[in-house]
Amino acid sequence: MSKVTVVGAGVIGLSVAHELATAGHQVRILAAEDALSSVSAVAAAIWFPHDVNRSGPVIDSARVTYQRLEQLARDPGTGVRMRAGTVLTRKPDPDTSWTRAVPQHAPATSAPAGAAGVRCTVPLVLTDVYLDWLRASVLALGVRVRTAEVSSIPEVLAMEEPDALVVAAGLRSGALLGDDEAVYPIRGQVVRLANPGLTEWIIDNDNPEGLTYVVPRANDVVCGGTGEAGSWDLDVDPAVESAILKRVEGLVPALAGQAVISRAVGLRPARSDVRVEAVEGFSRPVYACYGHGGAGYTLSWGDAARIAALIGPA
């Protein structure tokens, strides 16, 4: 049984650890914080390749993840639900490449003035339930999790002496590897409202007033958002929240007057392209798995499978 260390305990790191442990590897996770303290907990977590270059491998990973999450949705305890909704488009030639990963989709029969839409059913992840389930699943597979601040990959290789190491540390990944300055944050602010009975989600990336989405969950509705590339600001901006509320209420009038349950800001770990590959220059095999932008949940199982294939069986 080979030993593999995974740096990072968000949805990507946990998914990678799960697939490697399933393949028979002895896996250890090192991370400065757990998933519920990471950007993974802030996400609306609707399946959709947002803030990511939709290359062929990305669409393939999205398809694999869709299928896996669809299977998990059969067990309510996983926190995965299949939900119908609409992706609005307002451009003459919209990018609908993501639909290749969705088994069934159709043009929307109604949309706001100036917009068209695609109707489909996709997985929705209840982040707190799902991350607890995923962490429990990796622990049940024998994965060990240790909280530790990782300052460099050579230090981890010397300390852990793994047969292989996977860097899945989100925004910190490029700096840890020391060879990638292409990673940058995209600031996302959300406000969570009481759910007046909504079940269908809606995504309006091309809204002329700004990125807008409404994602109903069990007891709340995640409303967003922002896409501020390069911003590291984690403070909630009241003016931004007011603008978000105005946009979502215009899109879904039933949200008007609903109580604010919570609010949050997260930094999506973006890159020009998702990086899933072997990294040269270290004393032991090192692999990268990061740069997922706003598509961490959407690509998680597919990219975890790609890493498992690169490393091979135990």
Rank of each mutant, 00 (worst) to 15 (best):
I46D: 02
A45R: 03
N53M: 06
S55Q: 10
W47N: 11
A45C: 11
A106K: 08
R81T: 15
R74L: 14
P92S: 13
Q67H: 09
V102M: 10
Q71L: 12
A101T: 05
R63L: 15
R74P: 02
A101E: 08
V58P: 14
Y66D: 04
L72D: 07
S55F: 00
G79P: 09
P92L: 00
V87S: 01
R90A: 05
V87L: 15
A116P: 09
V87D: 01
A84K: 13
T99V: 15
T109W: 02
V102I: 15
P112A: 01
Q104M: 01
A116F: 03
L72H: 02
A45T: 12
P112K: 00
T89S: 14
T99P: 10
Q71S: 13
R81W: 10
K91F: 04
S61F: 00
P76T: 01
A44G: 15
R68D: 08
V52N: 10
S97D: 09
H50N: 15
G79R: 12
P112H: 02
T78I: 12
L69W: 03
H105L: 09
R54Q: 15
D93C: 05
A106V: 06
G117N: 01
T86V: 15
V58Q: 07
R83G: 11
P76G: 06
A108T: 12
H105R: 07
Y66N: 02
A45Y: 04
G56A: 05
A101Y: 10
H105W: 14
P92W: 02
A116S: 14
R54V: 03
P76V: 07
S61P: 07
R83D: 04
T65Q: 06
R81Y: 09
L88S: 02
I46S: 03
H105P: 15
A115K: 01
A73L: 14
A101M: 08
T109I: 10
T65N: 08
G56K: 12
T96P: 06
T109S: 14
D60L: 10
P103M: 09
S110H: 08
R83F: 01
P92K: 04
T89M: 01
Q104W: 04
R83K: 12
G117K: 07
H50P: 00
Q104K: 08
P94K: 00
G114A: 09
V64R: 13
Q71I: 10
R81Q: 13
A116K: 11
P76R: 13
S55N: 12
D75Y: 00
P57I: 12
A113R: 02
I59A: 03
T78V: 14
V64S: 14
W98D: 14
H50R: 11
P94M: 05
A116H: 07
Q104R: 13
T89W: 00
D60S: 10
P94H: 03
G85R: 12
S61E: 11
S61I: 09
P92G: 12
Y66T: 06
G117Y: 03
W47E: 05
D93E: 07
P57N: 08
R54G: 07
R90Q: 10
H50S: 13
G77P: 06
